[in-house]
């Protein structure tokens, strides 16, 4: 590998977020993921880059989909995988989180895949361990692998991300998926729109460089990609939105609202979907336009790429630090 190539690689030991990554780092991961996507589809054996490595899935928040996706990715690369689900009640205090990190560190894992309900918790944990850390979602902060798999899906369907108009619709306020996607899509040269009622938008969201719309029809006008976000049940009973039916009426994606987007607009959703709340079933199941299934498929490929780059960088870091 030439020096120049090395410079255009993703060179961090951890992947904690998308914010601050250079476009070439994102492209590096996406290129690798693209390859894995093809290999996964052909059911061909993959070079066991993680053979003999230990990957611990440390989930402080329940998740079946993301954990399974990471597990599949790690196993496909030949790693030994340990799944740890930590009861929420025992991790309320920061000290306990660090204790957990120290304990796990003693088991010499190579990669920790961490999901935590508090923003910044994954970063805190990453400071205390000698392995690589992959953020699988922290609070309402970031969910980098979701943004990468979304980008991979878009790139495969649309060829390129640059120049696309992407509408991210729904509960932006509480969404780590939205934050990571805004960073990634903006970095890659897409134009990002946020479409949501004011109560589900942080007041300073325009700071992240996205345009804000409160009307779905205006917000979806001529977009290339419609990214729906999940709205949690407890948030649609009057605190943020008056009711489920009002939310669906004004912000649920149905064919009427979708008709304002480009005719070939891609429909995406990070899952799990609330059918009839943020998305109409017919739209979600639209074979032609919905990429929701493909997102799940790309999740494995994107996570394989992430595991590959952080373990490679971990080796360099260990050498530098004499570990």
């Amino acid at each position: 590998m030439s020096t120049k190539d090395r410079e255009l690689r993703f060179t961090h030991r951890h992947l904690l977020g998308i914010e601050g990554l250079y476009p070439f780092e994102i492209t590096d991961i996406l290129d690798r993921a693209e390859r894995y996507a093809a290999l996964n589809r052909q059911r061909t054996a993959v070079e066991p880059l993680l053979k003999g490595r230990t990957v611990i899935n440390l989930f402080f928040e329940n998740s079946t989909r993301t954990r399974t996706s990471f597990e599949r990715a790690a196993k496909r690369l030949g790693a030994d995988v340990i799944n740890m689900s930590v009861a929420t009640s025992s991790i309320k205090k920061g000290e306990t989180l660090i204790d957990t990190a120290v304990t796990l560190n003693a088991m010499h894992p190579d990669v920790l895949v961490v999901r935590h309900g508090d923003s910044g918790a994954v970063e805190l944990l990453s400071q205390k361990v000698n392995c690589a850390v992959l953020n699988a979602g922290d609070g309402t902060h970031e969910h980098p692998t979701q943004a990468l798999l979304d980008a991979l899906t878009i790139r495969r369907r649309k060829g390129s991300i640059t120049g696309l108009v992407v509408a991210i619709c729904g509960d932006v306020l509480h969404s780590r998926v939205a934050r990571s996607n805004i960073h990634l899509l903006s970095a890659m040269g897409a134009q990002v729109r946020l479409v949501a009622p004011n109560t589900l938008l942080p007041s300073s969201m325009s700071v992240l460089g996205a345009e804000v719309y409160h009307d779905m029809r205006e917000g979806l006008k001529d977009v290339d990609v419609v990214m729906m976000l999940r709205l949690q049940k407890e948030r649609m009973e009057g605190a943020y939105v008056p009711s489920q039916r009002e939310y669906f009426h004004f912000y649920g994606l149905d064919y009427d609202k979708l008709s304002h987007a480009k005719s070939d607009a891609l429909i995406m959703h990070p899952g799990p979907m609330n059918r009839g709340v943020e998305i109409d079933s017919d739209v979600a199941d639209d074979f032609e336009r919905s990429a929701i299934q493909e997102q799940v498929e790309m999740g494995v490929a994107a996570r394989m790429a992430c595991l590959e780059v952080v373990t490679a960088n971990l080796e360099d870091w260990r050498k530098e630090n004499g570990l």
């Binding site: 009973e237 009057g238 605190a239 008056p242």
Partner: peptide
């Protein structure tokens, strides 16, 4: 005074 009514509809 607790939960918003369906003001839009």
């Amino acid at each position: 005074g607790r939960d918003m009514a369906e003001m839009g509809m």
